[in-house]
């Protein structure tokens, strides 16, 4: 099976600091790929490179088997790559529909076509079986953390996206809301999307992911099927970059 999204040999430095070393990473359609790693391992940087926010210094990105160039968030959006950021990119003072279409509003003539936007937003939310918001004309400021996360994810799905990357979607949520969001993440993959889940939380990772990719100090330590790994092995990969046969062979010094 060819991965829907594949990056090969990505390097990225910020000035003298090299953040990503020759990183390989793949995400498959219909699967949840968990991207794990300690703080500063380069998870967010990798995602921002894929999303076109940071330019890459070296390496290649393949989408559906073909090499692609991603220079801006627009490029990523056109390919169907959507990123849901950790600090939710929602505007509190706008309502759910307005947020979902932000920057890509539908228009009839010069004016906004509110009705068709509302219809489409509603369709998307119900296709994700979201039933927890009172009204989609509700301001985002009045939503709970889980509901906001849901809106942010729905916003990413709205655009016929093929790859959805979630940066720590459950970090700020309570138990019930986390379950809600994880269920949504699983549903996204089941509808055929390639989902990348960045998470610190091993329970979340084991609950929903099909594959695990572990970054260690800017290097990809291992990419393995979740069913082949134990909890302890993942922790070792995250903290030491290796676990038995798995991981980086020649110990890496920070």
């Amino acid at each position: 099976m060819t991965p829907l999204l594949e990056v090969r040999g990505i390097d990225k430095s910020f000035g003298p600091v090299k953040v990503l070393h020759n990183v390989e990473f793949s995400a498959y359609a219909g699967e949840v790929t968990a991207l794990v790693g300690d703080n500063g391992a380069g998870k967010s940087t990798l995602v921002k490179c894929i999303g076109g926010i940071y330019p890459i210094d070296g390496g290649e990105i393949f989408f559906d088997g073909k090499p692609v160039q991603i220079h801006t968030p627009r490029d990523a959006g056109e390919l169907g790559i959507e990123i849901v950021y950790q600090d939710l990119a929602l505007c509190d003072n706008l309502d759910i529909v307005q947020n979902m279409f932000l920057g890509r509003e539908r228009k009839s003539g010069l004016l906004l076509d509110e009705d068709s936007m509302e219809e489409l937003a509603e369709k998307t939310l119900s296709s994700l079986s979201v039933r927890t918001v009172k009204s989609i004309r509700q301001q985002v400021s009045s939503l709970s953390g889980g509901q906001r996360q849901t809106v942010a994810i729905a916003k990413a799905v709205l655009w016929n996206s093929k790859v959805v990357i979630l940066d720590e979607p459950t970090a700020a949520l309570g138990v019930a809301q986390t379950a809600q969001v994880l269920e949504l993440v699983r549903r996204l993959a089941d509808t055929g999307l390639a989902v990348v889940l960045i998470s610190h939380n091993m329970n979340d990772v084991f609950a929903v992911s099909d594959r695990i990719a572990a970054l260690y100090l800017g290097r990809m330590a291992a990419q393995v099927k979740t069913s082949d790994l134990t909890h302890a092995q993942v922790v070792e990969l995250i903290t030491a970059g290796r676990s038995g046969e798995l991981g980086l062979k020649n110990g890496v010094t920070p």
Partner: peptide
């Protein structure tokens, strides 16, 4: 975190 009551099992618009 929020005072918004969640309405499980109700369709999104019916709840409006």
């Amino acid at each position: 975190m929020s005072k918004v009551k969640e309405l499980p099992g109700e369709a999104i618009v019916a709840a409006t």
